[in-house]
Structures are given as structure tokens and as C-alpha cells.
Nucleic acid binder design. Structure first.
Lengths: 251, 251
DNA sequence: GACCTCCATTGCGCTATATGCAACGGCCAT
DNA sequence: ATGGCCGTTGCATATAGCGCAATGGAGGTC
């Protein structure tokens, strides 16, 4: 492991919650400020950080550029975009796209609700596996042993009264999701927010991603949200077709 | 300057154009693959990089997370969002938001056109100073000596027949933009694409950002685009008000 | 307008640290 | 079952990163 790389990345992450001075950063990683200066210089060269006025450093635009370039290069995201926009336009609710990678579920696209509500989500953010609809869909698509392994490695935290907090309960839920073809988050992550999610499939029928609708109870109650399931499934099917999926008759 | 940080960041940037194997990366920065392995480990710890299958490394989700968090924390972006969405919805054309920082103009938000056209732009991407409407607006807002310094430091490249390719011509254009209150890119960057941009102002009347409309000629001709200027200015004014700007009567 | 203070910056010498090498071991394919 | 390939690790070495202290510039105050 590389000490200076580690320190440099820690600096970058520290800068993510706002510009900082040299001394603040030095204190953060507990080294002499001349050391910080030199690390920042390397980061600056690559446009990961930039000076903000005389005394402050902030994240650089190279970071945004990199992140978006990588995001844009993902085929799923590009292919699925029209379906997401369409669903967002038709329903007016928040639409998310998420994938499973490296044992985590990550939002890779988001379309804001037309109602002015803010959700506790963001592109790039990881979604908890056991209390979000997208994660349920994605984990339910894994082979059973993998599912079990994941379920048992989770540290279940009860966000709301409805949160699933045990591996068996989670596995049962996944089973149901797999059979039903869509997932529900019944205010299990945030109070008064319901989500439904469906899988997006590729050429071989494998699950590439999940798309979801998130609706605050104030805007529409649970029954209302469940009535949107057909729309969601239709959008997910359209997205799947874009990704090369062809409906196979169950033999 | 820190050698290992430099190498690590070079790796990250290399991974931006797609997953790579250990050996490819080793070759890229010309070091022993064991060294690459160790650098990657540090990057992996911070979720900047992740393994993709057995033989490949790809960018990690920590990068997306970081980038979006920093982007979201920008007050301008958040405050201005409704005005951008509204303009996008009303016109159906591509809407950009850009700021000036560190001598560069960077797109920090984008709303896609309803017509299915792809633009050569992206959040995080730098906009050339001399042939984009947003950059003209932002540079025109700088004090004169700074404008001149910038104009003279530019390496003018003729993207299209209409591109401005000299400092004097650029400075004259900026002057006009400052007086007129909006900027025009008359197919100066991409052939057959016209853009108009207007400044977004803050409490003291200072220019915080620029918003623009981009329209392919196939969809609407130049005159048509110019007829959208009042809409653009209205949106920019609304955005400015959100940012604390209060119209001052010219004394 | 001059002085003073603060803080970024740099040159230097030392040590910790990153590096290359070579050997190991797991995995896949033949 | 065996061979080769590639990721991984232990070790010795040199180097690169580090802290220190001195420098210099900019801004603020009297």
C-alpha cells in the first residue's frame, strides 16, 4: 500500500465536503503542511483539485470530467435513458437507475420528481441492499448461494419501523421479488417514501440494471404507487429491448 | 511533487477510457506490475478503482459519488435547477449551465434536448473559451485586463468556418456580449449548431454562472433561435433572483 | 507609508517508504 | 495430471517523500 497515495486520496475526500485551507488539510491527515502542499501539487497537475482563491483548495474539474465520462461510457445507461425519461415524464415521479457491481448497488442515473421533493439519493451513491427496491431486484437476480452469502454478511440497521432486519426475512423477500418480477420498498428506508423497482435485462436475459419509481406518501399512497407497477414494468421491458433482450417464451 | 500520487492518478485517468488489465496499466506508466498492484490497492481502498472480473480493473463508484456530491453542494447549481428545467421543458432544447473557475469554463449541469440529438458536451467537460456562448458570457464578465490576458493566452483553433481565431476579434466579440447582455455561438464550435447564453447573477450583481440553449440547425434556424433570446433572458433572470440578485435601476 | 505578522513556499538532510526482482502459488486449459 | 500464465508476496535497496527551519511575499495595522 502506498502511503502518499492514501494520503492524497484522503485529501480529495476531505475536499468533497467543501473547500479547505492548507492547515485544515494538514491537520486532517496529520502531516506537515509542506507535505500537504506537495501532495496537492500532484493532485492539481491532474486537475483533481484546484485553488479556490488564495487560501483555499477545492475539488478540481478533472474529477467531474472523469466521473461523467466513465458514467457516459456505460452502455446500459445510454441505452436505457429514453425509457427512464419517458417514465419520468409520464408519471412525474423520481426515477432511478442502479447497477450491481463489486458487491454494492449504485445509482447511476436519476430523474427528479416534478413535485418538489428532495430524496436522499444521488448518482454515485450506494443503495443499502436490504431496504431499497432497486437493490432487492438486483440481489434477487443473483444465484442463490451468492444471495445467501450477501444476506448473511449484511449489518442490518432499522432505518424505519418497516425495515427488514434479518437475513432470513431478507432472503424470503428476495424470493418473492424474484417470483413476482418487481420489488417494493414499503417505507423501509425512508419514512413515507414508497418505491417500486423492476429489472432491466440484456441479450441473454441476464439482469443488467434496475429501474425504480420513488413516491412520497404525501403525493400518492401505497395503493396508488402499486397501480403504477404496470407502467414501470412496461418501461423496464422497453429498456430491456434496447439492451438486446428478446422475450423468450417460458418452456 | 509526489511520484506515486502522480502514477496513481495517471492510472485513474487511463481507466477512464475503459477497464484495463494489470499489464496494460503497468505498461502505461512504465513500472513493474507489482508496483501497479500496490497503487491499485490504495485506489481500491478509497473506492476510486474496483476490480471488474478477474483480470480487469475499472473506475470505482467512489469517484462518481465524490463528483456528484461536490456538484450537488454547489449552491448555484441547486438554486438554478428549477429555472433550467423549466427552460428545457418550455423549449425542448438542450440547456447547459457553466461556471468559470481556475481560468476554465466548465459545464456543471445539462438538460438534454427532447429531439434526439447528441451534443459534444458533458457535465465536467471544459468549454473552449472562444467559441462557446457560455464561455463568452463568463469571460465577458471579467475585468478588462483579465479578459485581455486570457484572450492573448488562447491557442485559437478553427473548429468551423465561423470560429473566431484571433485575440482582437475575440475581445471585440466579448465587448459586444457585455453590452448586449447575451452571447451567441453561430456554429463556431460545431457546424450547424447554434447556441445562445446569458449570465446568472448573484447578490452583488456579479456573474456566478451562465446558462445556454443549444439548437441544431436541422431543428430550428438561426432566426428561430434568436427569437428564443427573450425566453433565455427571462429564465436567467429568474435564476438570478434565486441566487439573491435584485434588479438595480441603472443610476 | 513603513513596519509587522502571517502563511505559502523551498532547500536540505535523514529516514521511511515505495520499488523492482525473483520466487511462490492458484487457476485454467490442454 | 501437468504445464503455463498471471496475480501476489518477501526482501533488500535506493529513492523519493518527509519534517524542519529559513525565506519571501502579501496583506493588514498603526
Amino acid at each position: 500500500m502506498s502511503q502518499s497515495v492514501d494520503r492524497a486520496l484522503t485529501l480529495v475526500r476531505a475536499l468533497a465536503d467543501g473547500p479547505k485551507t492548507l492547515d485544515q488539510l494538514a491537520e486532517r491527515i496529520d502531516v506537515h503542511k509542506s507535505t500537504v502542499l506537495r501532495l496537492l501539487r500532484s493532485l492539481e497537475t491532474h486537475r483533481f483539485v484546484q485553488r479556490d482563491g488564495v487560501h483555499y483548495y477545492r475539488l478540481g474539474t478533472g474529477l467531474f470530467d472523469l466521473a461523467h465520462r466513465a458514467l457516459e461510457d456505460r452502455d446500459v445507461r445510454r441505452l436505457v435513458e429514453p425509457a427512464l425519461r419517458e417514465l419520468n415524464a409520464a408519471t412525474g415521479h423520481t426515477v432511478h437507475l442502479a447497477t450491481f457491481e463489486g458487491g454494492e448497488v449504485v445509482y447511476i442515473d436519476k430523474y427528479e420528481s416534478r413535485h418538489n421533493v428532495r430524496m436522499y439519493s444521488r448518482i454515485g451513491k450506494r443503495a443499502p441492499l436490504y431496504c431499497t427496491a432497486v437493490a432487492k431486484v438486483l440481489v434477487a437476480a443473483l444465484p442463490e448461494p451468492e444471495r445467501r452469502r450477501l444476506a448473511e454478511s449484511i449489518d442490518y440497521v432499522g432505518f424505519t419501523g418497516a425495515t427488514i432486519t434479518s437475513a432470513p426475512a431478507y432472503l424470503a423477500e428476495l424470493q418473492q421479488v424474484a417470483e413476482r418480477g418487481y420489488a417494493l420498498d414499503n417505507a423501509e428506508h425512508e419514512d413515507f417514501i414508497h418505491c417500486i423497482a423492476a429489472p432491466i435485462r440484456g441479450t441473454g436475459g441476464e439482469v443488467l440494471a434496475a429501474m425504480s419509481l420513488s413516491v412520497p406518501e404525501l403525493v400518492l399512497d401505497l395503493d396508488g404507487v402499486l397501480r403504477l407497477v404496470p407502467d414501470l414494468l412496461a418501461a423496464a421491458r422497453a429498456a430491456s429491448v434496447e439492451c438486446g433482450w428478446t422475450a423468450q417464451p417460458p418452456e
